[in-house]
Design a protein around this nucleic acid. Structure first.
Lengths: 212, 212
DNA sequence: CTTTACAGACCGACTGTTCTGTTTTTATGA
DNA sequence: TCATAAAAACAGAACAGTCGGTCTGTAAAG
């Protein structure tokens, strides 16, 4: 509430580093082992730390995964064109979102978490609001740079929502696709279909921000 | 190989009924509890049978889930218009696929299984070929009734593949959608977009089959 | 001297699997 | 047709291993 983050004390820093190390190991476990097999023991081994370190920072498995999810969402929040450059064409944005965000270790971990949320009520309770908020702000960030053929902002939102869900669904199907080329063709076909409905806002006013 | 299925003996029938009861309970567990929490104990309780009955028919958890998946796929193979009626318009097919197939207990169970396959190599090995085959034959079944604006069969396949992946992805997002209406709007928008790319084959020749 | 950050032992509950009985069905052979 | 052995369909106990969570101990920071 106040003018927070006054002193980055030694303990604060140690804590923060340890939490980062734990969450990174958790992402790797979620990606490689899935939510169920992501246990305290596995995370501990992967991070090369002790059991107590984990339980000290994250009392329950749900707390650990929820914290990991928040961290992943923060990373995924910043879009690809954040360097002050103009937003990429629709086709390029969709292609790079797949390669760099959805089909990455973090993206696969997020999907594991989303699936777990469906049946793990404790985890769902911890993440519901955050995920809704992220959804909203991420949509604002992207939809602000594109416009649909209908010209309506709601339609732009809908189209990007559709894109996100398609990419996530593709992740489930990836291991069963008939050939790698077919996956590329699906991506291409979808991106071209979206391209016919969306385009970069012409009069884009680039917001200059102090980087870092 | 031969003129199989000569005698549906008493044991065969008992076996078949028991397997059906077990798999139905497994579907319910997968839907309500997720793959990880779908244990022998839970399935046993849900089906109201003994522990031995399950392990007799399905030696491992992966075998149980794989058999359940096959059963679900068989049910989902028959499309919605199978009563000799002509295929529905693209919009209606997409809408009813969501409501009756993807977002059903069986559809949710399938998604749980697909996610599990990503990290459970034993399960993946049991299901890989079957899932590929189902994918192919299901695509043949549907794509045979529709034609894309490009006129190419490959494009029709791609478009229906896209639809399937979108619907599955939507399942992951469902609990975090801002409002039920928004989900309806996404469905509507996607279906209209597909409608602009696909239509029912005009010269559909209906195959007459002796029904049951 | 208090609090925090970690280390690691400990615990009951539950997991998937194996195992041994018991009942029911089937095959056999006279 | 009917006794009987073999096989299949179940029932349920037993087991070693792992799970998430708790608990005490120790060193460093405040």
């Amino acid at each position: 509430m106040n003018i927070a983050s006054k002193k980055p004390s030694v303990q604060d820093r140690r804590s923060r580093d340890m939490r980062a190390k734990i969450c990174n190991a958790t992402v790797a476990c979620l990606d490689q082992l899935g939510y169920a097999e992501t246990t305290f023991a596995k995370v501990q081994a992967k991070a090369g730390i002790s059991r107590g370190a984990i339980t000290h920072h994250f009392p329950t498995k749900q707390a650990l995964v929820a914290a990991t999810a928040m961290r992943l969402l923060d990373n995924a929040q910043t879009p690809i064109w954040n360097r002050g450059r103009p937003p990429p064409p629709v086709y390029e944005l969709i292609m790079s979102s797949w390669a760099n965000i959805v089909n990455s270790s973090g993206g696969r971990a997020i999907v594991e978490i989303l699936v777990a949320c469906r049946t793990d009520t404790a985890l769902f309770g911890l993440l519901e609001q955050s995920l809704r908020d992220w959804d909203r702000s991420n949509l604002d960030l992207i939809s602000g740079q594109y416009v649909s053929v209908t010209g309506s902002r709601e339609d732009t939102d809908l189209l990007w929502s559709i894109a996100r869900n398609f990419l996530r669904g593709l992740l489930l199907h990836e291991k069963f696709v008939s050939s790698p080329e077919y996956l590329t063709q699906m991506m291409d076909r979808f991106a071209r279909m979206m391209e016919s409905q969306l385009q970069v806002l012409p009069e884009t006013q680039i917001q200059i921000e102090d980087a870092e």
